[in-house]
């Protein structure tokens, strides 16, 4: 689900990271605010398809294939959203909400697909700089976001290791026995990461 940058030369790739962030954010916002109607499902799907077709991800059907790829990685989120809402809210809101959420996520993914994290980090830092007069440290905030993003895959792998270790000792999948070891592992990672950041020149 955590999409990575794909090198490319389309217009969205070439667009400066700051304006691109604002553009994609506003499209995502509009899609998320659509009402829970049948028509919303159609509009959300259309916006996602158009977004992936016109953003210059590559020749021919490259954009649509990428969209398929993204949707495939979201399949469980889609199923869970759809089923839980079908049970509690009925078909129309369930379909509209699922379409809306899925479209928002895949549209947001266009940002990470076409922008290097370094460029994003620079843009966020620049964008936050006016707030420095209010005492905000722009460089630190931008860095915090970056580190958060990059920590997710590491913690995901650590969680799998903890589960494996427990299974190896015959424990069933049990959230209660999972939480404490995972917390310890996560805190240890945070500790090490703090040292590494300091060592690499971050104040």
């Amino acid at each position: 689900m955590l999409t990575l940058y794909r090198p490319g030369t389309g217009w969205l790739h070439r667009m400066p990271a700051g304006p691109k962030l604002l553009l994609i954010l506003s499209v995502v916002l509009v899609v998320s605010l659509l009402p829970a109607h049948w028509s919303t499902a159609a509009i959300a799907a259309l916006v996602a398809i158009v977004g992936y077709t016109v953003s210059g991800l590559g020749p021919g059907l490259r954009g649509i294939r990428e969209l398929g790829h993204q949707m495939f990685s979201l399949r469980w989120i889609m199923v869970i959203t759809l089923v839980s809402q079908l049970i509690f809210m009925g078909p129309e809101p369930a379909v509209a909400n699922t379409a809306r959420v899925t479209a928002a996520i895949v549209l947001a993914a266009l940002l990470s697909l076409t922008t290097r994290v370094t460029a994003l980090l620079d843009a966020i830092e620049r964008g936050l700089r006016p707030l420095e007069r209010l005492g905000l440290d722009a460089a630190r905030c931008a860095l915090l976001l970056t580190v958060t993003i990059s920590t997710i895959p590491v913690l995901g792998r650590r969680a799998a290791e903890v589960r494996d270790a427990q299974r190896a000792r015959g424990a069933r999948n049990n959230p209660q026995t999972f939480v404490i070891p995972f917390l310890i592992v996560a805190l240890k990672h945070a500790d090490e990461l703090g040292d590494a950041l300091t060592a690499r020149g971050v104040r």
Binding site: Y5, V117, E192
Partner: peptide
């Protein structure tokens, strides 16, 4: 800190950027 570098055992905790 500008003049020294530190290397630790666990590479996972030292890598920060995605590429």
């Amino acid at each position: 800190r500008r003049r020294i570098a530190i290397v630790f055992s666990n590479p996972d905790a030292q890598i920060i950027m995605p590429t």
